[in-house]
């Protein structure tokens, strides 16, 4: 079943397309990373999916309903981010109690265990928590809802490394125990890569690629060899990244759409490229990188 379907989805802010002609389909019971640089349009996309904001044009369907103003979609999805405003009048334990009232699938025991594990006080007020603590609470809240579509937008903001690691473990374990559709956005792929099944790469509001992590690992290769030879060989290859090691040695990352033996035969040194690097290269603004600025 397709949980999310968008066609030509566009959101315009002050004549800038934050999300531009975005067409994607996401199946149920998958865990997908929404990857892109800051300002790529991840948050805008996720908010449209959660029904918080309305598309300018195109179509978006969540559980076959238009999520903006759909009670059905709202009851079965939640967006967790660091902008969530919880009512100041309620304590943390009261917030969990309200969550249980509203979300039919709420897992009280699970919420309580994590609440205790991360040593929250029942009488604390969300507003008074530190940034990391807020994020932790929000994630617990999001997971406890057991919503069929659970969306996390940069969920680990402000958490320290240990908590971050713990939370991702919790997320993965809970996903395995209660499969559902999860979207996680991050601009650090390496941080979430190990829990993801699929990757949705966004840049400038458009969909760059939607592949499984396995596919992404095979997506590109790094070749190192003499500049003259390699440069010539690159003719009609899809180059993602180029780097000059010395005057006669060069390193390139190319899309892997040719047999690897071809390159090995030429004497180039072939190494795999991590998915996170692929994402960085795919969304780099210009050829080369920050080093080019200093040339």
């Amino acid at each position: 079943m397709n949980v999310i379907e968008t066609t030509g989805l566009t959101k315009t802010y002050r004549r800038m397309n934050a999300v531009d002609d975005f067409t994607v389909t996401i199946n149920d019971n998958t865990i997908t990373g929404v990857i892109g640089r800051n300002g790529a349009g991840k948050t805008t996309l996720l908010k449209m999916l959660a029904g918080l904001i309305k598309e300018t044009s195109g179509d978006v369907r969540v559980f076959h309903e238009h999520p903006f103003n759909s009670l059905y979609a709202s009851a079965n999805s939640i967006l967790i981010d660091d902008q969530m405003l919880f009512p100041e009048a309620l304590t943390l334990s009261e917030l969990l109690a309200q969550g249980a009232r509203f979300y039919p699938g709420w897992d009280e025991a699970f919420a309580q265990q994590l609440f205790d594990y991360f040593s929250f006080e029942p009488k604390q007020i969300h507003e008074h928590l530190s940034k990391g603590k807020k994020s932790t609470f929000n994630m617990i809240f999001g997971l406890a809802t057991r919503c069929a579509l659970t969306i996390f937008d940069e969920p680990t903001t402000g958490m320290d490394a240990a908590v971050r690691k713990d939370m991702y473990r919790v997320l993965l374990k809970d996903y395995l125990a209660h499969p559902r559709t999860i979207l996680i956005s991050s601009h650090h792929l390496e941080e979430v890569e190990h829990i993801l099944e699929n990757i949705l790469l966004i840049d400038d509001g458009t969909l760059h690629l939607h592949k499984s992590v396995e596919e992404l690992k095979e997506y590109a290769v790094r070749l190192t060899g003499p500049t003259a030879l390699l440069g010539q060989w690159l003719y009609n290859k899809d180059v993602l990244h180029k780097k000059q090691h010395s005057s006669d040695m060069m390193e390139v990352v190319v899309k892997r759409d040719f047999p690897l033996e071809q390159a090995e035969r030429m004497g180039f040194h072939v190494t795999p490229v991590a998915p996170s690097d692929v994402c960085i290269y795919l969304t780099a603004k210009s050829e080369g990188g920050i080093d080019d600025v200093f040339k």
């Binding site: 009851a75 939640i78 405003l85 809240f141």
Partner: peptide, 8 residues
Amino acid sequence: DDFIFVTN
């Protein structure tokens, strides 16, 4: 606040 919970 409402949008943390179920609403339209």
